[in-house]
């Protein structure tokens, strides 16, 4: 298979993926609606109380809390979109489309790159909505262009890495229903990180877990980048986790590409 076809076939698959998105925008909207609801709930229902507990002089306000949770909400948005990726991969796997593609003389990777590029596109759209939404609610940032560029880079890296992981989950699922459930763990884990409350306020065992799970350095890095404060060692940890998760997902996905659906 020659190189031009890798690009051409991948573009064909990406077009297919984006067409699905344009045909069923409600599916994508649902996925973005979940973090939007969480944002509203946390800021307006819990924000006053949780803001007061923030480690700022004299206790924080609702506005401080908004600023505090925005990075966590972005991570949730990425996880939510990735959930949709697992579902669409599982539909192709159980519905026989992957098997059909595999009997054709096309660039092998294109079968997955369509899903991966489509997912990254959906993530960028989802995050844009989320940023606008947060700004509308009063989110302000002191960071300069470098900080925002760094944040955008990390967010893309995370999206890429979650996408490969959920592609693998979708292939492994065996049913569309399972595929929509497995990635929920990615939605829940941010709650047990520094995303919504500082880890210092958690009980010892939980705190230990929260401080060492991948979401905490990722969220801390995003928080520092968008606030214009120093990133410190969290930056490398965040990038390292993203690369590790993405690579594991990629290898897992590749191993499963040879599966034939049995009906």
């Amino acid at each position: 298979m020659s190189a031009p076809y890798v690009v051409r076939d991948s573009m064909t698959m990406l077009r297919r993926n984006l067409r699905h998105l344009s045909r069923y925008p409600s599916m994508a909207l649902m996925l973005i609606a979940i973090p939007v609801v969480f944002l509203l709930m946390f800021v307006y229902v819990l924000g006053g109380t949780l803001g007061a507990g923030l480690p700022v002089a004299g206790g924080g306000t609702r506005a401080d809390y908004l600023t505090y949770i925005v990075p966590g909400i972005w991570v949730m948005t990425i996880a939510s979109v990735a959930n949709g990726t697992a579902v669409s991969v599982a539909i192709d796997q159980t519905g026989g489309m992957f098997a059909r593609f595999r009997t054709m003389d096309i660039a092998r990777v294109s079968v997955l790159t369509g899903h991966v590029l489509g997912a990254v596109t959906r993530t960028v759209l989802g995050l844009s909505v989320m940023i606008l939404f947060a700004v509308a609610l009063g989110f302000r940032s002191d960071a300069g262009p470098a900080g925002w560029l760094g944040a955008a880079g990390l967010v893309l890296l995370l999206a890429f890495s979650f996408t490969w992981l959920t592609v693998a989950m979708g292939l492994a699922a065996g049913s569309v229903e399972t595929a929509s459930n497995t990635p929920l763990v990615l939605m829940v884990l941010p709650f047990v990180s520094s995303g919504f409350v500082p880890t210092e306020q958690m009980p010892a065992g939980l705190r230990h877990f929260a401080e060492h799970q991948p979401f905490t350095p990722i969220i801390e890095t995003l928080r520092a980048l968008t606030a214009g404060t120093p990133v410190g060692s969290d930056g490398w940890l965040a990038v390292g986790w993203c690369v590790a998760i993405g690579l594991a997902g990629y290898l897992w996905a590749r191993r499963q590409l040879g599966k034939v659906p049995v009906r």
Partner: peptide, 27 residues
């Protein structure tokens, strides 16, 4: 060319788009 025991078509696309997809992948 393979037509399997169960229809393997893209349910989110139209019939024309399904055929077009195969044509594109055949270059």
């Amino acid at each position: 060319g393979v037509t399997g025991q169960f229809s393997a078509i893209d349910m989110f696309l139209t019939g024309r788009e399904n055929l077009r997809l195969m044509a594109d992948l055949t270059h």
